[in-house]
Simulated scan of single mutants.
Amino acid sequence: MRVLITYGSKRGGTEEIARWLAQALREEGLDAEAAAPQDVGDISGYDAVIVGGSLYANRWHRDARRFVHRHARKLRERPTWFFSSGPLDASAADGDLPPTSQVRALMEQVRASGHMSFGGRLEADARGFLARSMAREHAGDWRDMAQIRCWAASLAEALALSGDVGPATRESEPHLPF
Rank of each mutant, 00 (worst) to 15 (best):
T14K: 00
R62L: 01
I17S: 02
L30W: 12
S91Y: 04
R73G: 10
E27F: 03
L75K: 12
D42L: 06
V51Y: 00
D42V: 04
G140H: 11
A22M: 02
R19K: 15
T169Q: 14
T6C: 04
E108C: 06
V40P: 00
R127K: 14
Q38T: 02
G120T: 05
S44R: 15
L97K: 05
R76A: 13
A18T: 05
Y56H: 12
R76P: 04
V103Y: 02
A156N: 08
V110Y: 01
S44F: 04
Y56T: 02
L161E: 15
R73M: 13
V51P: 01
G29T: 08
C150D: 09
F118L: 07
M116S: 08
R127Q: 15
A135I: 05
H175R: 13
W142S: 11
A146Q: 14
E16L: 13
L106Q: 06
A92D: 00
P99I: 01
W20A: 12
A90N: 13
Y46V: 03
T169K: 12
R76E: 11
A160W: 12
A48C: 06
P98H: 09
Q102T: 00
A57Q: 15
D89N: 15
A153G: 09
L25S: 08
L4K: 12
D164H: 13
R170P: 03
K74M: 13
S133I: 11
S54V: 01
S101V: 00
A156W: 05
G163W: 11
K10G: 02
G119R: 12
D94K: 15
G8Y: 00
A93T: 02
V103W: 01
E77K: 14
D63H: 04
N58P: 03
A64N: 08
V40M: 04
F67M: 01
E123H: 12
Q102E: 02
D31F: 07
A146H: 13
E137S: 15
A22C: 02
G13V: 02
G120F: 02
W151P: 03
H138V: 07
N58W: 07
G12H: 07
Y7F: 06
L176T: 10
S154I: 01
L122M: 08
H71T: 03
D164V: 10
L55I: 01
L4M: 11
L106R: 09
P167V: 10
S113E: 14
E137A: 14
P87D: 03
P167K: 13
E123I: 07
A146M: 09
V40T: 06
R11D: 05
A152R: 11
A93Y: 00
W60S: 01
H61D: 00
D89H: 13
E157T: 05
S162R: 14
R66M: 06
L75S: 14
L97R: 03
F118G: 04
I43A: 09
D96Q: 09
T100D: 00
M145D: 14
H138R: 14
A158Q: 12
L55V: 00
L88R: 11
S172H: 12
R136L: 11
I5L: 07
